[in-house]
Write a protein that binds this DNA or RNA. Sequence first.
DNA 1: CCGATACGCAACTGTACCGTTTCGAAAGTC
DNA 2: GACTTTCGAAACGGTACAGTTGCGTATCGG
Lengths: 202, 202
Amino acid sequence: MTHTTDQCSARPPGRPRSERAAKAIVDATLDLLAEEGGVAGVSIEAVAARAGVGKTTIYRRWPNKEALIIDALAALKEPLPEPRGVSVREDLIAIARAFVADKSDKKRVDCYWSVLGSAERYPELVERVTREVIEPRREVMRAALRRGIASGELRPDLDVELAQWIITGTITHRARAAGAGPVPVDFAERIVDAVLAGFAAH
Amino acid sequence: MTHTTDQCSARPPGRPRSERAAKAIVDATLDLLAEEGGVAGVSIEAVAARAGVGKTTIYRRWPNKEALIIDALAALKEPLPEPRGVSVREDLIAIARAFVADKSDKKRVDCYWSVLGSAERYPELVERVTREVIEPRREVMRAALRRGIASGELRPDLDVELAQWIITGTITHRARAAGAGPVPVDFAERIVDAVLAGFAAH
DNA sequence: CCGATACGCAACTGTACCGTTTCGAAAGTC
DNA sequence: GACTTTCGAAACGGTACAGTTGCGTATCGG
C-alpha cells in the first residue's frame, strides 16, 4: 500500500464543492419555481443570480434545468404522517392536519402547483412527483379509511377512493383558491367532522 | 344631409376585419394556453402560426398578450346552472353535474388552471377570472345549500362555506389529478350522496 | 374604377435566455 | 510549493420571441 489516503471513500483531490453554494442553488430554484408559477419561469440565469453563484457552478452539478428541479423538489419532501390513534376520526384529523400544514407553507404549495401545471411540457417531472410524493400520502389516508370500515366506525359500503378525493380535494382546493386567504388552523377538524356526520339533517 | 351612409352605426370604410381570423386567433390562444400549461407559454408568434394568421392581424386587434388572453378567456364562459328542483339533493347534483361537465372539457380546465397558476405573474388576469367566472358559480351552490337549510333538508348548523369547498374542491381536484383519467359520469351523484349521508356508520 | 382598410408574409431591431468556454483567484491535498 | 479542482465573473454564438415596418394582394364602399 503506497497510498495513505485509503481512509474510506477516496476523497478526490482539489478544492471541494461548496455545500453552501449547492444549498443556495436549490433554495433559489424553489423560490423561483414558486414565484414564477411554472417550470418555464425558472431560468438557470435567474437561479444563478438569486443564489449569488456563477452559472458554471450550476452546470457543474446538474446537466440541465429539469434535473435541477427534480433534485430541488426532493428537498421539499416531508415525513409521512403515521397515525395510529384510537379512532378513525382522530386518524383522519391527524392526516388532514398534516395536509393543511403542508398547504400552509405557501412556497411548498406553489412549487407543487407549478410543477403539476407543467404536466404537458414536463411529464417526467409530474410523474415523479406524483409517484414519490403524492401517491404515498394518498395511500396513508386510504389505509386509515379501510381501518375505519373494518372497525365498524365507517359505513361498510363507503367508497374509499371517493372519500379520499373528498378530504384531500377540499384541502387542496381551499389552499389554492384565489383570494381566500390562509387555511384556518381548525380546517382539518371541521372538514373531517362535516364529512363523517354528513350534510343531511338527522 | 349630404350623407347617405347615415344608416345606423356608421360603418367605417375599407375592408372590414375578418371575423374568421378573430375566431381563429382566440381559438389558437386557448389551445396554446391549455397545451403549454401557462400564460408564459403563449407567444404571439405561436398564436399567429397556429391560427394561420399574420402577427400584424393580432396586433391590430390587441395591444399585447395579456389583453388577448383576457378576451380569449371570455369565450370560455358557460351559462350558469340555475337549479330549482324539488330537493336539495337534486339541486346539488345538477350543479355538481355542471361542474363535472365543465371539468370534462379538458381544454377549458387546462386554460383556467394555467391562468390561476400564473397568479404571481399576472394578478389582473387571475382577479378577473375569479370575479367573473368562479365566484358566480360558487354563489349558485351556496344559495342551493342555504335553501336546503331553510327547508330543513340540511342540518341547521351546516357550514355553508365549508360544504361548498367540499363539493367543488372534490370535483376540481379529481379532474386535475395526474393519471386519474377522466371524471366518471356518475361522479356528481356519488359525491353528493356521500357528503349528504356522511361517512360514519348509522 | 378609386380610395381606404385589412389581409398574410417577410424582414428587422431589441431583449432574454441557453449552454459553453475562458479567466484569474481561492481552497483543498500531497 | 506543486497540483488539482472549484469558485464567481464575463463573454460568446445560437435560439426564441416581442413588437414594428414595408410589401403586394384582397375586399369593402362609393
